[in-house]
Design a protein around this nucleic acid. Structure first.
Lengths: 341, 341
DNA sequence: CTGAAAGCGCTTACAG
DNA sequence: CTGAAAGCGCTTACAG
């Protein structure tokens, strides 16, 4: 049987209240008594029952993590385990735990969040890669990874995705490309909305007018695209010579399609991509891709949460995590290398 | 303020006990009363406080998940997120949650497990890819993924790894290879111990004597190997023509080394590998690799756990998850294709 | 500096 | 079929 506070109290010849105080280093307990109690506690291998503790304090040492789409599904993309690593590391240092929302299929972010909070198990919620506008009015602090629609009133951590979109397009522009497409826009995800924004700015700055039919949508998390539309675009004489792609998986799909059409990367089409995954790293050609540092996104989000829980942060705060570009073989300057056709 | 059982009781004009019973579908409550109470409960958006419930029932709807090595670290390998998906799916269907052990660095499996259990938050523990013999005497049911040292007395789910090791070696043998090496043996992980066992059997069955210096160890989770030893082996005139590698990452490392020595895969060296990762899939040459079905490993483990928690399983039970081979380009029949040198 | 008492929100014998 | 009471293991005003 596990030792309770009463066992310790009896053994020490004091009341449970005193044990409780001693264990919390309450200064009103004499240090001799406290020491003795603490010794006894370890001797009896006493660990306070967190359930009981939480019941009175209305706090737990658990923060809930909610994934977009079907809970499990998103874990299939390497972005998510990486942020989980960051979340876990930050949590462990402060002795917090992670509770995964495993809402059954087809559950929305809002539903999964409510479930977690209603269970009473979590003191806070971290929401990953938020859809643009999840409506959530929950009774615990929330930090989102990604820019939420109502950013002004929320805690969140994100990359500067307009800067990233700008950097991506600019990278291509600087290498002589003028016909630059964007693949993977999804209005439900502000990551892509922001990157599109940056992409537009770069093009306009270069005196180009972004073509609306060259902004190809896809379902962001699921990485599905309308291949018909894509084929159509690349069948045209004045097809794009370069593309900014929202994710490596999308890029790999595109390369497959292009290969089937006899177009090769990077000779005929350059691709700059996002997320720096293993797939992109080992693909031939290897993808030039942005590392958005998901680990650090997770780390920052959890630290922010823990500070909030400690009461050290009150104003809605937005944290920015820097991204970096990993240059590999999927981009070529226009006109360099082999002739284009 | 969240509604409590008292609020519901007052509203319904009954006692809290009656509310509790009604919500649990206790047959001793008249169905009219029960219905009325349940309606009121949803109207007040009542959700029982799990903390309170757990305090009395000594059960929670949470199972703790502990990772090998540094908690976060292992998530860097795609095997782990995949099992997490399986765990999550199975848990969600039965309204259970996952609590991740985020033991700070250098924490052992045993320590992480104790922490989780001592916290009182978890009703069960699932331990991933167990080291050979983690000593754990905890007060909640444990199921391990992988074969534990004391398998006889434990619940666990695993592939048949001796069959897998046998199949791997046999695949090479069947293609004419006689000098077959094994890369990635780690005595601390029974996965590799078992596969080595199968490998040995296949060789012996083919009338070959396994060479001990061709069983190259590495730290399994960390994927680090003694490259000196490897170089030495492949510098020799009678070097291996094929290798059974415990993990795609190891295989990729090996291919790099081989490439540096002017040896190419699969022409001069064939490799059959494990884990069927993206890296191996997109690498050139693409790896022929076993899919050990981590998703299903997770699914089975969680279902087993939930059955145990329900009292439906009492005897230690071992579940087997089938593996399959994904044939790609890293193996060539001996003597086929280009001349060997 | 320490203790007795009340209470966190439930569940569950025990009565009736 | 329903209620009053005790209790799960803690914490925390309130006394002293």
């Amino acid at each position: 049987m596990k030792a309770t506070i009463k066992d310790v109290a009896r053994e020490a010849g004091v009341s449970p209240s005193t044990v409780s105080r001693a264990l919390h280093n309450n200064p009103r307990i004499s240090s001799e008594v406290r020491q003795r109690i603490q010794e006894i506690a370890v001797r009896l291998d006493f660990h306070p029952n967190q359930m009981a503790r939480s019941l009175v304090s209305r706090k737990t040492r658990i923060v809930g993590i909610v994934f977009p789409g079907d809970a499990g599904q998103s874990l299939g993309h390497p972005f998510f385990p990486a942020v989980l690593q960051g979340l876990g590391h930050a949590a462990s240092e402060r002795r917090y735990h992670l509770l995964l929302a495993t809402g059954s299929e087809a559950v929305t972010i809002a539903e999964a969040s409510r479930q977690l909070v209603d269970s009473g198990y979590v003191s806070g919620l971290i929401i990953l890669a938020a859809e643009a506008s999840p409506q959530l009015d929950v009774s615990v602090p929330v930090v989102v990874i990604g820019r939420p629609a109502d950013a002004r009133q929320r805690h969140y951590v994100d990359n500067n995705n307009v800067a990233a979109g700008y950097a991506a397009a600019r990278y291509l522009l600087d290498r002589g490309h003028r016909r630059v497409m964007l693949l993977g826009y999804d209005p439900h995800y502000n990551v892509t909305v922001d990157r599109l924004d940056g992409y537009r700015r770069a093009l306009e700055e270069a005196g180009l007018t972004p073509r609306e039919d060259w902004i190809v949508p896809s379902r962001f998390i699921h990485n599905t695209t309308d291949n018909e539309a894509l084929s159509h675009i690349f069948l045209s004489e004045d097809r794009p010579t370069a593309v900014v792609s929202m994710d490596d998986a999308l890029s790999i799909g595109l390369m497959g399609l292009l290969g089937g059409m006899g177009l090769s990367v990077p000779q005929q089409v350059s691709i700059i991509s996002f997320n720096n995954t293993d797939a992109g790293r080992y693909h031939v050609p290897a993808l030039t891709s942005f590392d958005v540092d998901p680990y650090r996104l997770g780390l920052s989000a959890m630290n922010l949460m823990l500070d909030i829980l400690k009461g050290q942060v009150t104003e809605p705060s937005a944290l920015e995590v820097p991204f970096s570009l990993v240059e590999r073989g999927s981009v070529e300057a226009l006109g360099s290398g082999l002739p284009q056709w």
